[in-house]
Design a protein around this nucleic acid. Structure first.
Length: 579
RNA sequence: GCCCCCGUAGCUCAGAGGAUCAGAGCAGCGGACUUCUAAUCCGACGGUCGCAGGUUCGACUCCUGCCGGGGGCGCCA
């Protein structure tokens, strides 16, 4: 799934060293273990692990490799004890690579040699329920993965697995009926949670209502036209609500991506039949179950995946299995990503295990749980509103935008008002998304407006600011951004070299982020890139220097800004040209 | 009780293909604005990488056991 690179000096170095290591070792497939180094541009550690198997001192191996490699045009290498090779690249070589990247619309990011169809399951709000802070991570992480996968050339199928089916819909529809169809239209703008709660409370306390609700479930499942119409209106009005959030947030999901539970419902009997046909289905306490090996319950007994309850109802496990079948057989998915919270790990592991047992999920076809931790409040507990309710997603996005606009207006009051709003929107939403994406997804993270909106440190505004400064340089320079592309810059000063090297690492980082399904890898890189740029900016005048240096540095500025913009784009974050 | 995840500087977090990785940002301290946007930069300070063992030439990184925090564990999704 790697993105791959055409210009990463570390990869090119590894390619150059590998044959030498293999020759010296007399083995194939030797890893030269090339890494960034503090003592040079790169180090090759490959001699160390080889020492034991070859029974030779690592320094002898390294010395032999050093002698066997053609260094001309690439750089110089030194041997360091006990067997490292420290490599310093020729400035001219780095400059040529930068020129190649700058001339490339893709900034060196190659398309994959093995394009796949990848289903990305993310966001998953519920019909007639408020979309809340708990949906932030899945939405933002999933969207970023979609963008990265598309960039490297995979066919991506977004699936928004909304909760739009099941028992609760009896009471929800009955409540809608009670409100009257004329009032139903206003539900979307009202409080969805209030709607759900009222229905739920009435279900518990009003026996008549509960009876109607139960009957309504039956009507729904027999696809009674009137009931379906009511159901559809609930779905549509809820969609309006979350589409509002998606729109403000700048998320790719549309109504076309909706693949809710209702879609899989018709496949449930087939799931059972097919499980039965494979002989996996067992009866346990009156329920139909499958026992995937390796899972135990409280008593240490085998833990079943229940696909049909005692009462004869299908479960969400059945639905998830149907989902696997659909994605494999209809969509033709090679890889299925489930961007779902970490607590679901066991459930998903069991579903995947059963799908494998049934032969629906044979390697290399793979299902991956892209798990993530919680969003925590300042008290380090799950973020809640003051009333103890989950925080509404729309409120968070609105506040982010408000804060972003306020910050921009505060820092740059000269900006025309319309631009202040647009830039503020990008800054606020960027800050929100970046705060979420920049932490290793498996961990919980602490939600903090102050920190995410700070212009210092590893934040979106800092990256956006670096980008805007570069754009400002070009406005002042009054030259076309494209003018220097393809011309090798002069790599003389330390900050120029550091910046150039960093730029060249972009494709590998995209590959790494995809390999681990971890956008935060890309965030770390972009922060380092922005830091390298500001150091360069402080120490290397671009405009106030001789023409030749100016031309050279503008090349670095241009390519840096493009990597920043492109990288932020992969995170779903806009890079304004002015802040 | 069993299983999963997390534990790195005062705070928030990187680093997990073993070695030349003890890192960044923030806060605090000391500097740098007749600016290419100081929304920034530079410097010093700051940690027995939860604890204890083990494997190895070498462990923040791998293994085992503890401790602490969070989560999951049959008919809700």
């Amino acid at each position: 799934m790697m993105g791959g690179s055409m210009a990463d000096p570390l990869e090119l170095l590894a390619d150059r060293l590998r044959p030498a290591f293999e020759r010296v070792a007399g083995l194939a497939g030797v890893d030269p273990v090339v890494r960034p180094s503090e003592h040079a541009d790169a180090q090759a550690n490959g001699a160390l692990p080889l020492a034991k198997s070859l029974g030779r001192p690592p320094r002898d191996i390294a010395a032999e490799v050093l002698a066997a490699v053609e260094w001309e045009g690439l750089g110089t290498a030194e041997l360091a004890e006990p067997g490292f090779l420290n490599i310093t690249f020729d400035a001219g070589w780095i400059a040529e690579l930068v020129a190649a990247v700058a001339a490339d619309d893709r900034l060196g990011v190659a398309t994959t040699a093995t394009p796949q169809t990848v289903v990305v399951d993310y966001s998953a709000p519920n019909v007639a329920k408020e979309i809340h802070i708990g949906h932030l991570r899945t939405t933002v992480i999933g969207d970023s993965l979609v963008r990265m996968l598309e960039l490297v050339g995979h066919t991506v199928v977004r699936e928004n697995h909304i909760g739009d089916w099941g028992r609760p819909f009896g009471m929800l529809i009955e409540h809608l009926v009670d409100l009257g169809s004329d009032r139903s239209a206003s539900m979307a703008v009202g409080d969805l949670d209030a709607f759900y709660k009222t229905a739920s409370a009435q279900f518990e306390h009003d026996e008549d209502f509960a009876t109607r609700a139960r009957a309504r479930v039956v009507a729904l499942q027999s696809l009674d036209p009137e009931t379906i119409a009511l159901w559809r209106s609930l779905v549509e009005q809820s969609a309006t609500h979350w589409n509002d959030v998606y729109g403000k947030l700048g998320v790719l999901l549309t109504d076309d991506d909706i693949a809710g539970e209702s879609r899989y419902w018709v496949l449930l009997p087939e799931v059972l039949e097919r499980l039965d046909a494979t002989g996996l289905l067992e009866e346990s306490d009156g329920a139909q179950v499958v026992f995937p090996p390796g899972f135990t319950n409280r008593e240490g007994q085998p833990l079943p995946l229940i696909v049909r309850s005692q009462a004869g109802a299908f479960t969400y496990a059945t639905s998830d299995l149907a989902c696997v079948l659909d994605r494999v057989e209809r969509v033709g998915a090679d890889t299925m990503l489930y961007v779902v919270g970490a607590p679901q790990a066991q459930h998903l592991a069991m579903v995947f295990a059963v799908a494998e047992m049934a032969g629906w999920l044979r390697p290399p076809r793979a299902a991956v749980h892209v798990a993530f931790g919680n969003v925590l409040g300042p008290d380090r507990k799950m973020l809640k509103s003051r009333s103890g309710e989950p925080v509404r997603f729309v409120d968070v996005v609105d506040e982010a935008i408000e804060r972003g606009v306020a910050a921009v207006g505060d820092k740059n009051p000269e900006l025309p008002e319309a631009e202040q709003r647009a830039v503020g929107h990008a800054v606020g939403v960027g800050a929100l998304k970046y705060a979420d994406l920049s932490t290793d997804r498996i961990r919980d993270y602490v939600f903090d407006w102050e920190r995410m909106l700070s212009f210092d440190g590893n934040t979106a505004p800092y990256l956006q600011y670096a980008h805007a400064r570069i754009c400002s340089i070009f406005r002042r320079a009054d030259v076309e951004r494209t003018s220097g592309r393809g011309h090798p810059p002069t790599i003389a000063e330390v900050p120029e070299r550091a910046l150039a090297m960093r730029v060249l690492g972009y494709p590998s980082v995209v590959g790494e982020a995809l390999e681990r399904w971890s956008p935060h890898r890309l965030c770390t890189y972009l922060f380092e890139l922005a830091s390298d740029f500001t150091t360069f900016y402080e120490h290397c005048p671009v405009l106030r220097t001789d023409d030749e240096t100016r031309r050279s540095r503008l090349v670095l500025c241009d390519v840096t800004a493009r990597v920043l913009e492109d990288g932020l784009g992969l995170l779903g974050i806009n890079a304004p040209t002015r802040m």
